[in-house]
Design a protein around this nucleic acid. Structure first.
Lengths: 226, 226
DNA sequence: CTTAATATGTGATTTTATTCACTATTTAAG
DNA sequence: CTTAAATAGTGAATAAAATCACATATTAAG
């Protein structure tokens, strides 16, 4: 596929004029990453901005002891890496590909000229930062107010994606994620998640298998979020 | 004081041309708030952007049971309220004046025109959002990795402002804040903070009195942050 | 000056989640 | 095809922090 056509599919660039997009495409570097490939590490000097064309990238932080918390999972069309460019601080987290991924990379020297030539890009980034901040504040509020069972239920509902292949109610939803990863996103232990999932299974709200959770009754799950 | 001179002191506006600042001043509404005055509530439609000229504003969220977490304390020169304007979502938190305060208010209709006429304002807001996000991520990481004693020590160090009036080492620092407020910022109970402060007192690292904590040995306090 | 409101101090108890120590299962890699 | 690595399941013990129930102190407001 031609690069400018790919760019048109990315929300960040969709409202640009074709000519601008062509110009931008000359500044972007293609980067293929294998599963497990590292984009940057916490503490690195921020030297680029990344847009995910295809794949899955995890933004996370690890403690000295090896525990890890996941701050975000980013997919096709998402971008990241702007923070270190915007506030001139070192990378605040690690970025690692969870699947083979294709990214476009914009060097820091080209980032601001690009940004300020495109009002809509500024709008996109402002909106994205705002939504991320909102999400972060929500997370802090949840940790303060809710128990692990409620937080798990809430997160499962958020992660739920409708299972096509069936039109009947009640709808089923599947979440492709290990219990370890889910625990890391909630900032709790894998064991806690496992035990709570067992309770949900016993009540018939979910089924589990390796790397996936099937939600059988999302309405009752929603009732457990408080 | 003349409004344009006040504006010049605010980081968000300092790099504007005098003429622009004069123009902006015609769009800003002055707003005086008494201690306890409410600017907005979580769930409100966001209708304005606020700049603090003088005072102290708390951004917080409360649970149905009355528990409260503090997301930010903002002071002279800080701004807030931009999130609901940038992402078109309802207010994500409450904003209340903790002291008599003077604010300038920019209506949502004037916000974007102002923003996009001033590259430096965009830069300021992008930088501020980025720093806030970084802080929020840090907070989540801390909650996941550190115990309450470590988090308290860390926060005390962050909040420490040098006590002028004495030049001798080791420096003393005073934090003007109730234990309740400190607890709310860390997302823990007031009692937990109180008990940990007792331990710090017994070790001679801090002294406490109503609405204030005096840090007597910041170096040893720093060592407790891990 | 008295009283109400706010802030602090502190033990005992309970709750929640972690840690620990394994077993079992499934998948991927040589 | 075998073995190593990753994932999941589970109970017992432990630890951390919350909750509860007060007492005391300080300040602000009538």
């Amino acid at each position: 596929m031609i690069i400018t056509d790919l760019l048109k599919q990315i929300p960040l660039f969709e409202s640009m004029a074709d000519a601008e997009r062509r110009q931008l495409s000359t500044l972007l570097q293609r980067r293929n990453l294998r599963k497990g490939g590292i984009l940057f590490r916490k503490g690195d000097k921020g030297s680029a901005f990344f847009i995910i064309i295809k794949g899955l990238v995890k933004i996370s932080v690890s403690s000295k002891l090896g525990d890890e918390v996941t701050l975000a999972l980013l997919r096709n069309g998402d971008f990241f890496g702007e923070m270190a460019l915007l506030d001139e601080q070192p990378r605040s987290a690690d970025a690692v590909a969870l699947e083979d991924s294709l990214l476009y990379v914009l060097d820091r020297n080209d980032f601001f000229p690009f940004l300020f030539k495109n009002e809509n890009a500024v709008r996109s980034i402002l909106r994205a930062l705002s939504l991320r901040l909102r999400r972060a504040d929500d997370l802090f509020t949840e940790i303060s107010f809710l128990t692990v069972p409620a937080r798990l239920a809430k997160r499962l509902v958020e992660l739920a994606e409708p299972l096509e292949s069936q039109r009947s109610e009640p709808k089923e939803y599947k979440i492709r994620m290990s219990q370890r990863e889910l625990a890391s996103m909630l900032g709790v232990t894998r064991e806690s998640i496992n035990k709570e999932l067992k309770i949900l299974k016993d009540k018939g709200l979910v089924e589990t298998s390796r790397n996936s959770i099937l939600i059988r009754d999302i309405d009752r799950l929603k009732r457990r979020t408080r």
